[in-house]
């Protein structure tokens, strides 16, 4: 969703500043000001009311033991106790954090490069490119919850397709894809990648289609081989797309939730920060204060890539 605002980087405000303008004249007409006010104001109101309001609310609730019943203002303030218990006593926090990191590393270093590879290959294919694109892109159309259900069925111990193909359905040799806590995160990551690869592929392919072919020809004339052309010419020129892809991948990893939740509600090796929040806050459990403290931790972690991305974007705007 951020993708749209990044692509238009380089040629900034060159055309408009044609003449020197005296200072006391306003650059903007009344209509301009109104348009600006509406453009900034309406999203800002929604942003404050729907995003920053709840965010600040969560932050404040994280210092209470609110159980979701009655007003949060009546809840007992317990200081940083939720955080202390989260970092020291709660047995599921560190596993969840490490699973989020594994998720990020896998998407970043396996799934995303694979998507880029597919894009590069499909860019070279002359015939049937559309068909391949459709095949790889199809999973992206499905919601992650549906993907979770589809893959749960494939991984099922006796009834699942995978164990049946491998012939591992007997009681003494079956592979417990979803139950084995060292295995199930990889099984979930394969399911997540199934979608992620197609997503990245399409974005990258769009970039490659817009790529100036003369650059490629120039590289060829200079005697570069395919690999050199890609890594020395195509990849650097595609930098804006690369940034988008890194951001998308990071966000996908941080908000990973659906597949783990569908498989087993995020337990037994599939704990993620997002599932911990849900299981503590939005379920029959009612530890809203504690869930909020996990949400705040996730927010702080999310801020790192988002701030990095925004500052980069702003810098490009200013250049």
């Amino acid at each position: 969703m951020t993708g749209a605002s990044v692509g238009s980087a380089p040629q900034t405000g060159a055309r408009a500043a044609t003449g020197r303008v005296r200072r006391h004249y306003s650059l903007l007409t009344g209509t301009d000001k109104l348009v600006l006010a509406l453009m900034v104001g309406i999203p800002l109101v929604f942003d404050l009311a729907l995003i920053w309001g709840p965010t600040v609310g969560s932050f404040l609730i994280s210092f209470t033991n609110w159980n979701g019943i009655g007003s949060p203002f009546d809840a007992k303030v317990i200081g940083t106790k939720n955080y202390e218990s989260l970092f020291t006593a709660y047995p599921f926090f560190w596993p969840a954090l490490s699973h989020n990191i594994i998720w990020l590393a896998w998407l970043m270093f396996v799934a995303t490069p694979l998507g880029i590879l597919f894009a590069v290959l499909l860019d070279r294919v002359a015939r049937g490119s559309r068909i391949y694109q459709t095949i790889f892109y199809l999973p992206v159309v499905l919601s992650l919850a549906v993907i979770g259900i589809i893959w749960s069925l494939q991984y099922a111990p006796e009834q699942g397709l995978i164990n049946n193909i491998l012939g591992r359905t007997a009681n003494d040799n079956l592979i417990d894809w979803l139950g084995n806590p060292t295995l199930n995160i990889w099984a979930a990551l394969v399911a997540a990648s199934w979608r992620h690869v197609g997503y990245i592929m399409v974005i990258y392919l769009a970039g490659l289609k817009a790529f100036d072919p003369t650059l490629r020809e120039a590289a060829k004339v200079d005697g570069a081989n395919e690999r050199q052309t890609f890594f020395r010419v195509v990849f650097p020129v595609m930098m804006p797309i690369n940034v988008v892809i890194v951001v998308i991948t990071t966000i996908e990893a941080l908000r990973a939730f659906d597949i783990a939740y569908i498989i087993n509600h995020g337990k037994n090796g599939l704990e993620l920060l997002s599932t911990l929040i849900t299981n503590n806050g939005i379920s029959e459990s009612n530890r809203l204060g504690f869930a909020s403290s996990i949400a705040v931790v996730l927010l702080v972690i999310s801020l790192v890539p988002i701030v990095a991305f925004l500052s980069r974007m702003m810098r490009e705007e200013r250049r």
């Binding site: 709840p54 908000r255 999310s302």
Partner: peptide
């Protein structure tokens, strides 16, 4: 920041 909401919504 809508992503924040998606992540940190509790």
């Amino acid at each position: 920041s809508a992503f924040l909401a998606a992540c940190g919504n509790s």
